[in-house]
């Protein structure tokens, strides 16, 4: 009995670490972080997905290394250390994307290098990875990265469908479709982001009401 409890506890904790960034503290829709790449590269689903995965790679690797080195990094030089580590993995992902596809590299442009200053990554390194062992730190970073990817993909897919009439380059509505050009322009990014933020806020509110209602019934 005690053995089963011991094995169940870490699993639940790990799931909690993972789900935090994916839903409860989603970087795009809840914390509204990393808006610069979110709005700039989400003109198509493939760009959004690629940027999200690149950021996830940097997040997981950086948080893993920060966590491994956490006992040897003095507080006074921690920010410099984290920035060097993050910049290292951004350089790695920069080379990897060039090796995978130059067209994708051109499409993502300067926003690959700008991952260095993405506040989600430095925030995770400082607030989480520097205080936890590598496994939960990387799991949490993975959840955050996937949450960011989900946010980017949500924007990118809507903007591509409405702005170009396609998804992943595959035409959805035929040649007669008149694209909503505004969707691939900067204002379109704000419109779609606003729509998703409204939807997320409504879902969270409804969930909170449901929990409060359940507690009330349970209490009665």
């Amino acid at each position: 009995m005690s053995a089963s409890k011991a094995s169940a506890a870490p699993t639940a904790a790990n799931w909690d670490e993972f789900i935090e960034g994916l839903w409860r503290q989603n970087p795009t829709f809840v914390m509204v972080l990393g808006m610069c790449p979110t709005l700039a590269v989400s003109v198509s689903a493939v760009n959004a997905l690629s940027m999200g995965l690149a950021t996830t790679f940097v997040l997981v690797c950086s948080c893993g290394l920060v966590s491994m080195l956490r006992r040897m990094v003095p507080k006074q030089v921690r920010i410099a250390t984290y920035i060097v580590i993050i910049a290292t993995f951004v350089t790695v992902v920069d080379y990897l994307i060039q090796a995978i596809s130059l067209a994708l590299y051109e499409a993502l442009g300067a926003f690959i290098q700008l991952i260095v200053v993405n506040c989600i990554i430095l925030g995770r390194a400082e607030a989480h990875a520097s205080r936890r062992p590598p496994a939960p730190a990387m799991l949490n970073a993975f959840g955050m990265g996937l949450g960011f990817t989900l946010g980017l993909f949500a924007l990118g897919s809507v903007r591509e469908i409405l702005g170009a009439g396609s998804l992943f380059g595959v035409s959805l509505f035929g040649p007669d479709f008149q694209p909503w050009v505004v969707m691939v322009l900067p204002p379109g990014g704000f419109f779609v982001l606003g729509g998703w933020l409204l939807l997320f806020a409504w879902l969270r509110r409804r969930g909170a009401h449901a929990v409060a209602g359940g507690e009330h019934v349970h209490g009665a």
């Binding site: 030089v77 250390t81 060097v84 910049a87």
Partner: peptide
Amino acid sequence: MIRTLGVVATLCGVI
């Protein structure tokens, strides 16, 4: 502090 920065910079350089 210098040792830490040196170790991290070397490790990152290798990567």
